[in-house]
Amino acid sequence: MLVLLAFIILFHITSAALLFIATIDNAWWVGETFSADVWRICLNATNCTEIGYDFDDYATMQVVQATMILSTILCCVAFLLFLLQLFRLKQGQRFILTSIIQLLSCLCVMIAASIYTDRRQDFHAKNKQLYSQTSGGSYGYSFILAWVAFAFTFISGLMYLILRKRK
């Protein structure tokens, strides 16, 4: 039982770490001379432009930022709630509340990554001065980590739904 518990805790911590890296790191869209994420666009690794009010599609980018932050917070809350329920829950009961919060975290990651996938070209095309410099490129590892975090949070949410407290 301790091995299973250690695996679940490690899996959840890995999910949270993936969410933190995907939210913070500047590698959602990368090319040879630039990198872009949900916070800024950097040209030549030194000339960084914050995504602000002058950014044409700022409202949509704020949705991506907010849902990634919310998913990270929900994942951490779910972990703390799991630890609390681990000591407070009666034997034989399920970790339903932890599962719901973790699945909400999963939903937030999916929303953020889906919006970014759908609107990525619009983000750069509407900003003509940046588009000429960021037109070529591919999805970076932070974007891929966001989708991996989606899968991890979904699996851990299902694990909590199935998991019963045992002695």
Rank of each mutant, 00 (worst) to 15 (best):
I13T: 10
T14M: 05
L18M: 13
T23P: 02
I24V: 15
N26G: 05
A27N: 15
A27H: 13
A27L: 12
V30E: 06
V38K: 08
W39D: 07
W39V: 01
R40F: 11
T49P: 04
D56N: 12
Y58W: 07
Y58L: 13
M61W: 05
Q62V: 08
Q62H: 06
Q62G: 06
V63W: 05
Q65G: 06
M68G: 09
M68I: 07
L70T: 11
S71M: 00
I73V: 12
L74Y: 04
C76V: 14
C76R: 05
F79I: 11
L80V: 07
L80Q: 01
F82S: 03
L83F: 09
L84T: 10
L86K: 02
F87D: 06
R88D: 05
R88P: 02
Q91D: 09
Q91G: 04
R94V: 12
F95G: 00
F95Y: 02
T98I: 00
I100V: 11
I101H: 00
S105V: 05
C106W: 02
L107S: 08
L107V: 14
C108F: 15
C108H: 05
V109T: 14
I111F: 04
S114W: 04
I115Y: 01
T117S: 10
R119Y: 13
H124C: 09
A125R: 13
K126S: 08
N127C: 10
N127M: 04
N127W: 15
K128P: 00
Q133G: 02
S135N: 14
S138H: 06
Y141N: 15
F143C: 00
